[in-house]
């Protein structure tokens, strides 16, 4: 547990000292959502229909953007080899790192999403479902992305490779999250969607940090 707090504190402090790194995905998320009403003209009925899709796609892209820097600092400064050699479990270190990454780069998006939803005329009920699906879904996206990030760690100048590798795996989360938002519009039960999202989350939390460890060993090899 000590190790967990240590990693979290270090990450938070490092982020605090260069605030713009933390703000980039956040601003990116807000700007994409802001561009949609402009691109759609004054078609507010259409806008209301596609709001769940807009917010989810924007969150997905913002997460992909933040993933490029997930292990970059560690790889550049040699922490990665330290992790691989350290007596602590690599899976545990990676879990801590991924949790702090999610907390720093993704959690702010969830915090601001009710405000953006309000600007896009979501009802209170939809706002609630939006926050629940984001809380359940974004960790899965971050975890899957971490595999790609670890594998492409030694590859320079191929910034688009990571999204190409990872985006097909994002389909289930996107389907169930936006599905829940559509169902709540028709006042139907969303219990099954939420259950499946939770199942995806639990399975990914259990297995993916270990897989990321395997991927990091391969990535460091390159």
């Amino acid at each position: 547990m000590n190790l967990f707090w240590m990693i979290l504190k270090n990450e938070l402090r490092a982020t605090w000292r260069q605030a713009f790194a933390w703000l980039t995905p956040f601003l990116f998320f807000a700007l994409i959502i802001f561009l949609f009403p402009i691109a759609l003209g004054s078609n507010f009925i259409l806008l209301k229909q596609i709001t769940p899709a807009i917010i989810w796609i924007a969150a997905l892209l913002a997460i992909l953007l933040s993933l490029n820097s997930l292990f970059q600092k560690e790889a550049d400064e040699g922490y990665l080899e330290n992790w691989l050699l350290s007596p602590h479990s690599l899976t545990f270190i990676i879990s801590c790192k991924l949790f702090s990454h999610w907390l720093i780069y993704v959690f702010p998006l969830i915090l601001i999403s009710p405000l953006l939803g309000f600007l896009l005329h979501l009802s209170a009920q939809e706002e609630g479902v939006l926050i629940i699906t984001l809380l359940l879904g974004t960790p899965v996206l971050t975890l899957f992305g971490a595999i790609g990030s670890a594998l492409t760690i030694g590859i320079r100048g191929h910034g688009l490779l990571l999204p190409i590798l990872i985006m097909p795996l994002y389909v289930p989360v996107l389907i169930f999250a936006t599905g829940a938002m559509t169902l709540v519009n028709f006042n139907q039960s969303i219990a099954s969607e939420i259950a499946i999202l939770s199942a995806l989350l639990l399975v990914s939390i259990t297995f993916i940090p270990w897989l990321v460890g395997v991927a990091l060993r391969i990535g460091v090899d390159q």
Partner: peptide, 28 residues
């Protein structure tokens, strides 16, 4: 498939290329 091929085409070390491809194929 295309993601797998793209990953394979940018890694130059044979061992890393094979193992990275294997991991992404299994996850897929």
């Amino acid at each position: 498939y295309l993601g797998f091929i793209a990953l394979q085409s940018v890694i130059y070390s044979t061992r890393a290329r094979e193992r990275a491809g294997a991991l992404i194929a299994l996850v897929g």
